[in-house]
Amino acid sequence: MSSHSEIAVTVNGRRYREAVAERMLLSDFLRQRLGLTGTHVGCEHGVCGSCTVHLDGAAVRSCLLLAVQTDGADVRTVEGLADGERLHPLQEAFREHFALQCGFCTPGILMAAADFLAHNPAPARNEIAEMLAGHLCRCTGYAPIIDAIAAASGSGAE
């Protein structure tokens, strides 16, 4: 049997103390233990990007992290992106630009884009595309997602 550890982690501003199996992936911890099912699991080898969350402010793949590694850390998931009733500007832009269809890849892309825009507030379209290349979307063909991120950015480039 795998050994267990107790961790204290803040997720979307709420503090949790949980005993976790040391091998439990952060993605499974968020979904199965905390019920935060907005973080999606699409490949479990770091390619599809669906499970992207923020760890201490940086966008990371939650399928490539162990829950135990987040002890003492601050995690933000897509459920924590909106400001209460008010959607995050990226969420608004995604809706406005029809940038999602099935919506499965969307949470990961939103979290990555939020961090990306924090570092690059006025990106060019090709920079957005290169960031987005770390995420698979099989519905949209990507163009509407690029439009949405551009619209939400400082550049508003379309």
């Binding site: 770091g46 990007g49 992207t52 760890l55 940086a58 966008a59 990371v60 793949r61 490539l64 992290l65 990555a112 961090d115 990306f116 290169e130 960031m131 290349a133 770390g134 995420h135």
Partner: peptide, 12 residues
């Protein structure tokens, strides 16, 4: 560096 994986994986 921009060719190493992707934006998100380079964060980690």
């Amino acid at each position: 560096t921009p060719y190493i994986g992707h934006f998100v994986t380079r964060n980690r």
